Simulated assay, not measured.
Amino acid sequence: MKNILLTGSSRGIGAAIASALDLPEVMLIGHGTKSGIAADFSKADAPAALWQAALDQLGGTIDVLINNAGIFDDNPIDQDDAAWVANWERTMRVNLTASAELCRLAVRHWQQRGSGGRIVNIASRAAYRGDSPAHWHYAASKAGMVAMTKTIARGYARDGILAFAICPGFTMTGMAEDYLASRGGDKLLADIPLGRVAMPDEVATAARFLAIDAPPSMTGSVIDVNGASYVR
Rank of each mutant, 00 (worst) to 15 (best):
L189I: 13
R158E: 15
G70F: 01
S141V: 02
A134Q: 11
H135S: 02
V107L: 02
I17S: 06
I152F: 03
A106D: 10
A53T: 15
A98Y: 00
A198Q: 04
D191Y: 07
T91W: 00
G195M: 06
G174K: 09
P193Y: 03
V197N: 02
G116T: 05
M172P: 03
S141E: 04
R154F: 06
G36F: 08
A147P: 13
L194R: 02
L189M: 06
V203N: 05
K142I: 03
T151E: 07
S182E: 11
Q112G: 02
P168W: 07
T97V: 04
G169H: 12
N75W: 00
E202Y: 05
L194E: 04
P193L: 03
A139F: 09
L96Y: 03
A206M: 12
A98P: 01
A82Q: 13
S99N: 07
S19Y: 08
A140K: 06
Y179R: 10
G60T: 09
R11D: 02
A49C: 05
G60C: 10
G70R: 01
A83Q: 11
D178G: 02
D224Q: 03
D45W: 10
S42F: 00
P133F: 05
M92Q: 15
R93G: 06
R196V: 12
P200C: 07
I223T: 15
D81R: 15
A127H: 12
R232F: 05
P133L: 06
R104G: 08
N3P: 11
P193Q: 05
A157L: 13
Y138W: 04
A134N: 15
A82N: 10
N121Q: 12
A100E: 12
I192L: 04
P24Q: 14
T205R: 03
V197I: 10
H135P: 02
N87A: 09
G144N: 15
L180W: 04
M1L: 14
W110Q: 09
D78K: 06
W84D: 08
L194N: 02
G114L: 09
F170W: 08
T149V: 09
L65Q: 14
S221T: 15
D186T: 10
D201A: 02
F41K: 00
A211R: 14
F72R: 01
I17M: 11
